[in-house]
Amino acid sequence: MASLRLDGLAHRTLAPVDLALAAGEQVFVSGPSGSGKSLLLRAIADLDPHQGEVWLGTEARSQMAPPLWRRQVGLLPAESFWWAETVGAHLPLIQSSSADAERLSGWLAGLGFEPDVLDWSVTRLSTGERQRLALVRLLAQTPEALLLDEATANLDPGNRDRVETLVEAYRHEQAAAVLWVSHDPEQRQRLGGRRFIIRTGRLELEPETGWT
């Protein structure tokens, strides 16, 4: 639907970054822990003070109300937080129309959940369940770009594949730009796309290591 372009984006530990993702493109960022990968995603979502501008299609972030921006450029943090009692209470918008409800139950099924998970208490969820449901919560706000911070880090291989499949489906269906922060080199190769690495405070194109 829309491209995502970083224009001189910089934070405390990262030199200014210029990076353009076409609509429907997927890009990976890796780097040692503490190199500022998560901070980069937080900066794009405008959660921390930083320099630079981000464009979604032809719209500049600075010209858009912050809540609208964060709805459209959806960030999935490494640790998911929940504020209401039940899972479903976090998704008030989606259950309004039957088409939306159908889509939602499709996503839930894709991640191995029954529709009744919406009535579950959040305290009942395991870490892995929280992480997968956080993705559903994010998709339910129909973002035009996805920022995924270690989206599969705590998942077993089966659930990791489910998450990857769901993200891929959403990316194709919505032509959403997807920026992954990932530690897993196999994931980067499996899913394809340009790969970047943060080294000594700069974002660099990762040298090709040869396909396995």
Partner: peptide, 20 residues
């Protein structure tokens, strides 16, 4: 902090996010 930022990321404005 985590809950407040999760609410912001869900597209709530600051007043909704600190409401509780």
């Amino acid at each position: 902090r985590g809950q407040i930022e999760a609410r912001l990321l869900a597209g709530q404005d600051w007043e909704q996010a600190v409401e509780h």
